[in-house]
């Protein structure tokens, strides 16, 4: 094969070769925007590992923020779990263990920086350098706080988790968020979201009111995710091998959601308490792919984004966006 394009710098040539199949989809302009964007990952879980994998492959640099000890990864191996051969290396945190694997995935991106801060200490100064922030397995209170900070900085924030066969993403796109809708290959003029609700507000909507014409009852996946977050808020940790579902039952009672055998059963809650945030690689793969697409939409400015939650039912193999707001 002869490639005589010596005039172009070696690196540029390599990038256009490696990214060729995607540039043909979203264009060189989008690729340039991706190259100049950075995503901050707060906690690296099976779910966010899939997002990192997709976006790093596509050429969007990652910064890792996860001070949890490496044992936090033990029960949910993912693509960036350190290989067996490096078991003897003692990493000080999840971020440090994952870092070399991320760097190895796309050499063009260079070093993968680590932000050495705990979730509760993250502030505007930390988030300002990123286009997008993706958090996983953090308390809802922290997610709400980070969403507010991100919104003020005009950054996009996502809270994404898979649990059992299900997955959920809560989004904060910001008050002034504009996107360019696609009409076939044509790109239309920028427009705002049809309806914007800040994350801090829509998570306050009582669950029994989170219905619409297609979902006469609150979507089960969303209700279950809120139960997990509630359990975490009450106990400081996500459930695992838990048998007591009192916290969840009380929460649902307060939200006026009734259990029934068809839509949402007591067994569903028992299963949730038992498996907690256990993640199936296949479910993470689907949700991570969907969220990857969303973030590429946001960075490239092309395409209508999901507003304001994304819900995945891996058992039914269905996923949809659901606008959480109070039914009038």
């Amino acid at each position: 094969m002869t490639t005589n394009n010596t005039a172009a710098p070696t690196k540029a040539l390599k990038e256009s070769d490696i990214y060729d199949r995607q540039i043909r989809l979203w264009g060189a302009e989008s690729q340039a925007k991706m190259k100049s964007s950075k995503v901050l990952y707060v906690n690296i879980t099976g779910t966010s590992a899939e997002v990192i994998k997709n976006l790093v492959l596509a050429g969007i640099a990652a910064t890792l923020c996860d001070t949890r000890p490496v044992e936090a990864m033990a029960d949910a191996p993912h693509f960036f779990s350190p290989p067996k051969t490096s078991k003897k290396v003692k990493y000080s945190s999840v971020a440090h263990a994952v870092k070399p694997m991320v760097e190895d995935l796309n050499m063009l991106l260079g070093e993968c920086p680590i932000l050495e801060k705990s979730v509760s200490n993250l502030g505007a100064d930390d988030l300002k350098d990123y286009t997008v922030i993706v958090a996983s397995q953090i308390p809802l209170a922290q997610a709400t706080r980070l969403a507010q900070v991100a919104s003020k900085l005009k950054k996009q924030f996502y809270l994404a988790d898979c649990f059992g066969f299900n997955g959920a993403v809560l989004t904060e796109l910001g008050q002034d968020y504009h996107f360019r809708p696609e009409q076939g290959k044509k790109l239309l003029e920028p427009q705002p979201l049809k309806e914007y609700l800040p994350l801090e507000e829509y998570v306050k909507v009582p669950l029994h009111l989170t219905v619409n014409r297609f979902h006469k009852k609150p979507p089960k996946v969303y209700v279950l995710y809120r139960c997990l977050l509630e359990y975490q808020a009450k106990t400081g940790m996500f459930p695992s091998q838990e048998e007591d579902i009192t916290i969840m039952q009380d929460f649902l009672k307060g939200q006026q959601v009734e259990l029934d055998d068809e839509h949402l059963s007591k067994e569903d809650l028992q299963q949730l308490a038992k498996a907690g945030v256990a993640q199936l690689p296949a479910v993470c793969s689907v949700l991570g792919g969907m969220l990857g697409n969303e973030i590429i939409k946001v960075i490239s400015g092309k395409g209508e984004p999901a507003n304001n939650t994304i819900l995945l039912d891996g058992g039914l193999c269905k996923a949809w966006t659901f606008l959480v707001k109070a039914k009038k």
Partner: peptide, 17 residues
């Protein structure tokens, strides 16, 4: 034919499900 990681990840995950 254009090809991206995200769509492949989604389909592979669905296949395994």
């Amino acid at each position: 034919i254009p090809a991206i990681a995200t769509t492949n990840a989604i389909c592979a995950g669905l296949q395994v499900l």
